[in-house]
Design a binder for these strands. Sequence first.
DNA 1: TTATGTGCAAACGCTTTGCGTGAAG
DNA 2: CTTCACGCAAAGCGTTTGCACATAA
Lengths: 154, 154
Amino acid sequence: MQIPNHNRAARVNELVTRLREKGHRITPQRLAILKLLVENESHPSVEQVYEQIRPDFPTTSLATVYKTVNMLKEEGEILELGFANHSSRYDSNRPYSHPHLICIHCQDIIDAEVIEMAEFPDTLTEKYGYQILNHRVDFYGICPKCQMEAQKPE
Amino acid sequence: MQIPNHNRAARVNELVTRLREKGHRITPQRLAILKLLVENESHPSVEQVYEQIRPDFPTTSLATVYKTVNMLKEEGEILELGFANHSSRYDSNRPYSHPHLICIHCQDIIDAEVIEMAEFPDTLTEKYGYQILNHRVDFYGICPKCQMEAQKPE
DNA sequence: TTATGTGCAAACGCTTTGCGTGAAG
DNA sequence: CTTCACGCAAAGCGTTTGCACATAA
C-alpha cells in the first residue's frame, strides 16, 4: 500500500473542509463516495463506486454518483481518465497529470512512478506555440497477472 | 505540409495492395475513404470523413465509414485516438504510437515530433512487470490560433 | 427557511449490429 | 457465382438532464 491509512483519513477531512468552503454540501452519500475514492487505489469507475456504495445507500442512483464525481472533477480534487467505449476511471489520490500503466486484458490501472514530463511543456510551446495545460501519458500492455494466466490456459 | 503529395499517392496504392492481399475488397467507397484519410493531416473524425465523402457518395452512411475505419484499425493501417465524450480521431499517416498536441478549445490535433519514448517500456517492464505493447502521450493545451482569438475578444 | 442535492426516468451522442440488397472478385 | 460490403434502421452503452421531492446548513 503506497499511501498510509492515516493520510487517507486526513485527505478525506481536508476534502470535506475544502468542499464546504466552496459552498458544496456534504451529504451522507457524498461522504461515502469521497471515502471510497480516497481509500481505493484501483482507479474505480462510476459503476464500481455505485456498486460499493449501494449496500449502505440502497436507494442511491448512478446519476448521483456521476454528479458527485463531476463536481469533484471541476474542483480539481480527482483526476479523470476517460476512454472511448469504456467508462471513465478516477484517481482521487493523485489528482494531477501522471503516467499510468493500463492492462488491456483486465483493465487494471496502476500509477507509473518513472517518467518525468516536467521539461516537455516549455519545449512544446517553443516549437509549436501551444500553451500546455496538462498531459496524459498511458502505457498499454499486459499486467503480470494476465501474463501468468495466459501461460497456463486450463 | 509535412508529407509530399507523391508519397501520399504511393501510400494509397500500398494500402490498396495490402488490403487486397488480406482478402478485403476495394469498393469505391473504401477507396474514397482511404484517399481522404491519407490526404488529411488533421486527424479527422468519422463524422468529418462522412461529410467529405458525401458529395461523391450521396447514399453512403455513417455505418459504412465506421466499418471501414474499424477494418483499417484492425489491420494496423490507422491510429485511433479515442476520447471520452468526443468522437475518435484518426491518423493514417503515422499508424503507430506517437505524441500529440490537442487544443481543448478547437479540438485541433497535431503531431508532436519531440518526445522519444523508446526507452521507457523496458524500464516499466523491469519495475512493474507489465509487458508494454503501445503507449499514448497527449499534451492538452491551447493552440496558437485560439490563444490569439482569446486576446482580441470582439 | 431556502438553496442545493437526490433519485427516478427520459434523453443524448457516439458507435455497433442485424439484415436484406448489391456488387467485387 | 459466391462471398463480402453497403446502407438503412434499430439497438447499445456510458453519461447527462429535467424535475419533483428531500435535506443540509
